[in-house]
């Protein structure tokens, strides 16, 4: 069995993506998040052989090599990677706090890059034409007050994805981004209803982005159906244009 790594598997979009991969494909899933196994117990019970959860704090960038060598590679060959975990440090830039900013870059940029490094190395070793999907954000394309620093982490990953696609395309390894609009998850829980309404009014469809639609897009990009798609981004945002 081939495996897909999904970060941030314990809640929100990540949990939805894990559920979709397990129900719609034959891949196994290696879920990574800070949370313990209790948070994903339902999935572990339902898919005891196809779902593994590893508790790991993605702020510990330097430990990712050990995470890969001692845990991930022992599970099985890697076919896919979904970089979904993100830390939201929202504030106007004149209040920039360097510790928060560094923490956000570790979780949103440096760890995803490190995981990509080891996923591609695993694919090379096992001769697997795999698929990498990064979860970006509409904020990297349309400005929102207070999201400049967060949006910059997503813009970094979109540029990284496009270039890794170019770098590894000759080996059949694909890299794409899914760009969700605002969803009703814990990431947007700190927004007031008034703020949410203002954001949703900026979309063509005047409402929040459906989490399941985003997860379906991720599973599509992972799948063989998307074999000619690489180096691009699919916007799943109710038309924020």
């Amino acid at each position: 069995m081939k495996w897909v790594i999904v970060t941030g598997d314990s809640k929100g979009l990540g949990k939805e993506i894990v559920g979709k991969i397990l129900s719609d494909t034959e891949f196994g899933v290696v879920g990574i998040s800070r949370s313990n196994e209790e948070s994903v117990k339902e999935l572990l019970d339902k898919y005891p052989n196809r779902f593994k959860h590893i508790s790991f704090d993605l702020e510990k960038v330097a430990d990712i090599k050990e995470l890969y060598i001692k845990q991930i590679r022992k599970i099985g060959p890697i076919y896919g990677l979904v970089n979904n975990s993100a830390y939201a440090y929202d504030d106007i830039v004149s209040n920039l706090n360097v510790e928060n900013l560094e923490r956000m870059y570790k979780v949103n940029v440096f760890s995803p890059m490190h995981l990509t490094k080891y996923a591609i190395r695993d694919m090379l070793l096992n001769k697997i034409e795999g698929s990498i999907v990064h979860i970006s954000s509409v904020s990297a394309h349309t400005g929102y007050k207070g999201l400049s620093m967060y949006a910059s982490t997503k813009g970094a990953m979109e540029a990284f994805s496009k270039n890794t696609a170019r770098e590894w395309g000759a080996r059949g390894i694909r890299s794409n981004c899914v760009v969700p609009g605002f969803m009703e998850t814990s990431m947007s829980a700190s927004l007031t209803n008034e703020q949410k309404d203002r954001i949703y009014k900026r979309t063509s469809m005047k409402k929040e982005t459906d989490v399941e639609s985003v997860a379906n897009s991720v599973v599509f990009l992972l799948s063989e159906k998307a074999r000619s798609i690489t180096g691009t981004a699919i916007h799943v945002d109710n038309g924020t244009i």
Binding site: I120, R121, D122, L124, L125, W168, A170, R171
Partner: peptide, 12 residues
């Protein structure tokens, strides 16, 4: 790219 593959084969 071949050097990258050599690297992972040697590491293995």
């Amino acid at each position: 790219l071949m050097l990258a593959e050599l690297t992972v084969r040697l590491e293995d």
